[in-house]
Nucleic acid binder design. Sequence first.
DNA 1: TTGAAAGCGATACCAG
DNA 2: CTGGTATCGCTTTCAA
Lengths: 341, 341
Amino acid sequence: MEALPNPPARIADVAARAGVGIATVSRVVNDRGNVAAPTRERVLEAIRALEYRPSSVAQNLSLKRTLVIGVVLPFLTEASPIERVRGIVTALASSPYDLALYDVESADRQQRAFRLLADAHRTDGLLVVSLIPPDEEVRRLRAESIPCVLIDARHDGLPSVVIDDIAGGELATRHLLELGHRRIAFIGDKPADPFRFQSSRDRTIGYERALESAGVPIRPEYVREGTQSRYLARSIADELLRLPEPPTAVFAASDIQALGVLEAARGLGVDVPTQLSVIGFDDIEIASYVGLTTVHQRLFESGRRGAELLLLALAGEPAPSRVEMLPVDLVVRRTSGPPPR
Amino acid sequence: MEALPNPPARIADVAARAGVGIATVSRVVNDRGNVAAPTRERVLEAIRALEYRPSSVAQNLSLKRTLVIGVVLPFLTEASPIERVRGIVTALASSPYDLALYDVESADRQQRAFRLLADAHRTDGLLVVSLIPPDEEVRRLRAESIPCVLIDARHDGLPSVVIDDIAGGELATRHLLELGHRRIAFIGDKPADPFRFQSSRDRTIGYERALESAGVPIRPEYVREGTQSRYLARSIADELLRLPEPPTAVFAASDIQALGVLEAARGLGVDVPTQLSVIGFDDIEIASYVGLTTVHQRLFESGRRGAELLLLALAGEPAPSRVEMLPVDLVVRRTSGPPPR
DNA sequence: TTGAAAGCGATACCAG
DNA sequence: CTGGTATCGCTTTCAA
C-alpha cells in the first residue's frame, strides 16, 4: 500500500531493463508477431517489474487516433438528453471507444465545445445531439474527415438520426380527435429556439395537419409557442383554461411541458382526464409514473443508433443513409379520455 | 461550404507562411510575451489564413496534462448517478476541464476503466463514483500523483464526499416511529453488493439504531436485504404484506425499491398511506412526482462538491478534509402517515 | 525578440 | 528476429 517513489516507467525503461530495443518492447506490447519467445518473456518480465503501461497520450500522437468519441449536447441536466446518452453509452460499451461529454449550457460554452471537437483528432468521432453545428465546423470536420453523426438534428452535409416529428404531432392530435375532442390546444417551444430547432415546429405542423384533415379549424388562440420550461407551460395552460371557451384537450410538445399543464389543471381544480385531456411528447421516464399519455419517441434508441452509425463510419463503412428517421408511437395512459359533454 | 482539400495545418506550416520559427508561433498562440507587434501580426495572419488550431494531443504530450477529468461510475443508466453527473458537469462548466465518462456496467468494463484511468495522464484527475478502486490502482494514482476524489465511496488513501447513511436511516425510521408505527420493515440491498458497498448496510444500521433507542424490538422477518431492483423489491414487499402480521410501514433503502413497494401495495389493494406507510431514500426526481416520502440525499451536491474538491487538488491546494459528510434531510410527502388503528 | 534544437513517449520503417 | 531512427506536433530551454 505504500507509494512507488518513481515516476511511471516509459518504454525506454522497459527496453533497458530487458536489454532490448524499444521497437521490440512495442512489438510485445502490441502483440505484433516476430518476437522470439525468450525475448518476449524477458520483456514481459520487465514490464511486470516496472509496472509499465503505455502512455495513451503518446500513442495518440503517434497513431493519430484517440479511441475517444466526443458527445456534444445541450441541457444534459434534462431528462431527454440523458436518455440519449444512455443509448450512446450502451452502444459504445462493446466498442473500444471511450466517451467524452461536452455539455453545452451557454452560448460561449457551445462555441468552445465545437472548437475543441473540431480540434483535429482530440476525438476520433463526434456525436452531436439536438444541436446544429455551424457550417464552418462542418466544413472542417469533413476536411479532416472526422466522422460525425447528428442525433435529433439535421445538417446537409451530415448523416443524422431523427424522429418523425410531424408524424408524431399528427398522431397525438389524431388521438385526441378520435376521442371526440374538437377544442384542442397546442403548447410548443419558441419557434426561434436555436437548440431544439425544428422539432417543436414540426410537431406544430403535424398538429395543424391532423386538424385540417379532420376538418377542424385551427384557432390561433389555442396555439401557444412559448418555451420548453415546465413553469411557463403551466402558466400558459393556466391562461388557456381560463379562456371563455377553454380547450378540452392540450397537446404539449414535450412531456415536461405536459407536466406543467397537469399542474395548472390541478391548481384550477380541473380534473384530468374527465374535464381535460393532456398528451405530451417524448415519453420520458416520469411520464409512466404519472400516467401521462404521450408520444413515445425513441430517445434511448436514437442515441444507440447514432452511436452505431458513428462506429460504422469509424470502421470505414459508409453510412447506410443520410437521414435515418425513427418511428414514433402513441402511448395511451391515464391523462386522455373523451371530452366532457 | 466546400471541403478544404488539405490536411489540418501544423505549427510548422504557420511558421513557414509567417516566415518565423515555430517557437515564435507557439509564443503567439499561448500568449507568452516577448513577441514584437509586427511579428505577432504576421503570425496571427498566417494562423487565420491556414485556419490553424493547435493539436491538443501534441500539447498533451508536451505539457503532460490533458485538461480532462475522468469520471468512473457504475449504472449510468440509473437515476442517482445521473444526478451526480449533473452536479459534476455543473462544477466543471466554469473550469477549463473536459469530462470523460467511464460507465462501469460489467466487471471487465470496470477493470478496464480503472486501468485506463490509472494510465498515466490520460486524464489529469479522477472522480470515482459509488465505486471503490482497487488498492493497486490507488497506489499507482498516488505514485503518479494523479488527484482523485471519491464520491459516495470511501478509501483510506483518498478524499471523499459521502452522505451520512446511518443518520439517514435513523431519520427515516424515527419519522415512522413518531407517526406511531411499531411494525416497521426494511428493504435493502444485498450486503455483499460490490458497487453500493456500505451505503445500504449503513442505512440498516441507522434503522436498527432508531428502533433500539425507541425500545422497539427488531423483528428479523421484517429486515430484508435483497437487491436494488424495483421488481425484486416489489416481490419482497409482496411477501411482507402477506405476513400474518404485516408491517404497517416499510423503509426502503432506495427510492427505486420504494417504488417497487408502492406497486406491491397497489397490486394488493393496500392503500398508501392509510394502511401502509412507505419511505424511500435518495429523493430522485420521480419521488416528487409520485409524492414519495423519502430521505433527501444531496446527489447533485455530492457531484458538485466532489468536482470542486478535485479542482482544488488540481490547482495544487490540499483537500480541506479527508472525508466530507453531506447532511441528509427528511422530505415528507404523501406516502407516510399514522398507522391504521 | 527570435530560432534551433532537445525533449515528451510512443509507432513503424528499414537495415542488418 | 531485432534495433536504430525518423516521425507525430507541440513546448521550452538556450544562444544568438
